[in-house]
Structures are given as C-alpha cells and as structure tokens.
Simulated scan of single mutants.
Amino acid sequence: MSGTGTATRRTVGVEEELMLIGHDGAPIPRARDVLGSAEPADGPLEHELMEEQIETATAPHSTLEEIAAAIREGRAGAQAAADRHDARIAALGTSPLALAGTTVGKLRYLLARAEFGLTAREQLTSGCHVHVAVADDAEGVAVLDRIGPWLAPLLALSSNSPYWMGDDSGYASFRSQVWSRWHTAGPTRHFGTPEAYHAAVDGLVATGTILDEGMVYFDARLSARYPTVEIRVADVCLSADIATLLAALARGLVETAARAADAPAPDVPVEILRTALWRAGRSGLGGDLLDPRTWRPAAAHDVVGALVDHVRDALADMGDLDTVTELLGGLWSGGDGATRQRSWAAEADGDLAAVARRAADATLL
C-alpha cells in the first residue's frame, strides 16, 4: 500500500460478523464456547444474534495500512479462539449449506425471536459495518443526507452471499434480501438536522414495533456508542483486501459529504435508493447497477468508477487513492465474493460444503 496524503484523516473502525463452521463446512453453534474461552490476545469478540457467528471489531485507525492490519489481526484472533473448540471462521454473508440458526440465549435476542418470528429465526447473515469519525451529530446528519446515492455500489463490491438454504439464490447478495425484512432496514429520507434525526429514531421506538434504539437498522446511521457515522449496507467481505477497500471508500464518502455540507443535499426519492440497493444485491459486480448520476442502468465497472471519481479528491488528500486503485484492480481480476463462491461450486461439482471450506481458507489470507 502507498500514499502519503497530508489531509487530516478521519479514523475508521470495522466490525465484521463471521460464521463459525465445522470442518465439514456446516455452521456450528459454538459462539458461547468460543467467546467464553477467548483470551485478550484474540482481540475484542462479541456475540451476534446466532450461536453460529461471532463479531470482531477493530480499534479506530487513521491509515489504510493500519486498517488492513487490524482487519487481518481481528480475523486471526477470531480463528485462534475458534481453534480451541474445533471450529473455523468463514467470512460468508450467508451459509452455502441449509441450516436453521440457533438464537443466542440472551434475553434481548430471545425477545426478538419471539416478537419477530421467522424474520429473526432466519437471520443467520453476516455483514460488515464501517464506522467513520465525524465531529458531531450535525456533521453526521449532513453526511447521512448526502451519501445515500452511493451506498448501493458499496453493497455491490462487497457482495458475498449467493447461496441460501442450500440453493443458488440468483442474487450476488441474498443477505441484503434477508436483512431487508426488518422494518427499519434500508435507505432513509433527508433529516436536515440532528433534532430531526433523533426525533425520527425516537418515533420508531415509540411505535413499540422495535425493542429499542439498537433495532434502528438504517443502511447508514449515527452510532449510538461512538462519534461516528456507521455504514451498515455491506456483506461481510470474503477477503481482508475487499474489507479494506470498503473501509477506504466509506471514509472517502464521509469526507466528501462533509466537505459538501453547505451545498444542497441530493434530492433522491427513497424508492429509487431502495431499487438501486435491490439491483446491487441482485447483480453484484456481474451485471448492471443504477448509476447515481442518472439513475439509469450502467455497467458495474462504470458505476464503481463513478464512485471513485466522486470521492477522488478526498482519497487523494488522505493518501488513499493509489491503494484504492490497487485494491480495485485485485477485485476486478479476482471477482467479488459471490463470483468466487460460484466458481468454487462449479469446480467442486456443486459441493457447497467445499465452497464453505474454501471461504474459510480465503478469510485468513
């Protein structure tokens, strides 16, 4: 990686949800055991909704070199903890093999399972959340109001969940379809002010149809725990390189939006944003996406190129442009996670267990 930009770099942290699988490739409910015996050297590890997954989280970092190293260290630490219980970690947005997930035995998760039925029971899905520092809620809301058109390309480049319940879903990111069942998930309208944003969140909680503020699952939101904008749209990325690319582009989007805070925010209907996200989940990088400059179909390569152009000044100022160009070259030559999973399935004559095992190998590269 290269680049020595002189602009003050916003810090970035990355949270990754990872599957726990057995050596046969099937998800296994070992989260309680893995987390119970985790050591400080394994890094911060947390529960997710299902016993078949755990979450890693990096500390905030300023340079892409630090971010890339932290992502790899988080994955290695998670594998070290899983090794003690004969499990492997796999960066898979959904399991290639059919499985009914096991809800973690915590009160909040059990309440969610009881209240939301099949939607909660079928949430063995893994995403990647990127936290980018903002000065305050005012800057954060200005960012949220301006990054929406560019979130779909982030989903496309992270797409890594083509299989669902043992079948090819036809989607590059079927995780995004499963996740969209949550009634608070998806793109958002303009808020304009922190007061309007917090009133919207409070209004959702007041409806009684979610358990608490933590269930406000916007594709991008103000973090309730950190002074960050949390971009939540992506699948967990198959490789650490793609996760690093996602973090760099997310930071570039936040910086670009913050610089444009005094200009009018783009007025894009939520239904168009939702349709663009559906298209990205369906196609990944293997077909057309909706171009945010025109809202008409265009080749994925061109739309991702437009995203890079949109954030180019921010990337250059932070010294990230050369690294992003390099990582994108690797992504185009190697394919997104969905493409690679399907290629592995073809090589293995449709053996989806082999796909899961190869994903576990790729997770630690």
Rank of each mutant, 00 (worst) to 15 (best):
P60T: 00
R75I: 11
L222Q: 01
S158L: 11
L327Q: 12
V324T: 11
G214D: 07
E48N: 02
L273D: 00
A133I: 00
M50D: 01
T228N: 02
G350Y: 01
A224V: 10
L273C: 02
S180Q: 15
G284L: 05
W344V: 15
A263W: 01
R175P: 01
A196P: 00
T63G: 08
D235N: 04
A354R: 14
L238I: 00
N160K: 06
V104F: 09
A91S: 15
D136W: 13
M215A: 02
T275Y: 10
D167Y: 12
F116P: 03
F116L: 13
T325Y: 01
R108W: 11
R357P: 05
P187C: 08
L204Q: 09
R225A: 12
G186I: 05
T209S: 09
A26E: 07
V205C: 06
A362S: 12
E39H: 13
E326L: 11
A345T: 13
R146F: 05
R342V: 11
A314V: 06
D267L: 05
P29Q: 13
R189Q: 15
D212G: 06
S161Q: 02
E271D: 14
E51G: 05
L211M: 10
R296S: 14
T188L: 02
S158A: 14
E195I: 02
L64E: 03
G335V: 10
D288Q: 07
V268K: 08
R259L: 11
G319T: 07
T6G: 03
L321P: 10
S176D: 11
T8Q: 14
T102H: 14
P149H: 12
D212T: 11
D235E: 04
N160H: 08
N160L: 09
W164Q: 13
L157K: 05
W344E: 12
V308E: 05
Y163C: 00
G13L: 05
I272H: 08
L110T: 15
V104I: 11
L285D: 02
Y197M: 03
G281R: 09
A247P: 03
M215D: 04
L45W: 07
S62W: 00
E52L: 08
A261Y: 00
I67N: 07
